[in-house]
Amino acid sequence: MPTTRAGRPAGVTGRSGRAIGTAVVAIFVLFFLIPMAWLLLATTKSARGLTVGSPFTPGTLGDLGRNWEQLFAFQDGAVTLWVGNSALYAAGALVITVIASIPAGYAMALTRFRFRRLLLVITLIVMLIPNTALVLPIFLELNSVGLIGSPLSVILPMSFFPFGVYLTYIYFSTSIPRDLLSAARIDGCTELQVFTRVALPLAAPIVALVAFFSFVQSWNNFFLPFVMLPSSDGYPIQVGLTSLLASTPAFNPSSAGSESVQLPTLALATVISVLPVLIVFLFSQRFLVAGMTAGGTKE
């Protein structure tokens, strides 16, 4: 959605008002920027340089290289494994989420059946359920069917994503004319054919939006894999970070052994684990904000 606002009144009038406004914005932007900048710079320093030097002078590429080596040498390349696990979990959850939520949102928006409204209300209520409270019972449930430790124990619960159903519902009920579907039905399409031949081809934007939210949520999820996965081989990077954290002497004095991790290395690990989400976000932020705004106009 283009956000030109030509014709809107200039806003705070007067030169002093505008100067104050700019100053406030600048302070606020610094508040956001400084921690990120500090973290990026920290990856280029040695452990000593991080504590001794000024926080905002860049380090050297050599130190960045050494931190990189230390990070990927940690527990024989565990970090590579963890990033791969994260990708597997997020991708698996994304696929199942899309398969489950797109047809359901469509059915609630554009078909008629007796429990349609009930399902909609349930979806809204389920979106409020504290996920945190569900994780422990889900652990026991999956434990009883012997799934604990397998990738499915993380992927399946991650794929439960009522927000995706809701977004799809909003999308289909606001942007696809019912007459189009009625016409297809009159032409002899069955309900499934109406969905696959008429609705689905028009659904690309909402599939992308649901996929984005699902990916970010799964990639960032910590609590669920933390509870589900007993062995560090299966960790996603978010849980792996806690292993790194526990091997950092500054946080855990008892860990000053051979495998100890220095602070700049830890900083590098955090930067690496943000990158995938950040890249996806930066490429999709335009349609993302548009999607949020479109959802807002529904009300």
């Binding site: 489950a100 047809p103 359901a104 059915a107 349930i122 569900l134 019972p137 439960f160 309900e191």
Partner: peptide, 30 residues
């Protein structure tokens, strides 16, 4: 038609039963 609509919303309902209803009931029981 009813069957087809069930097929559309079935996966989501299945997930809902498996990862909300069942865990909540079990948590209350345990």
């Amino acid at each position: 038609q009813r069957l087809e609509i069930t097929a559309l919303s079935g996966p989501a309902i299945l997930m809902f039963l498996a990862f909300v209803i069942f865990p909540v009931v079990m948590a209350a029981y345990y």
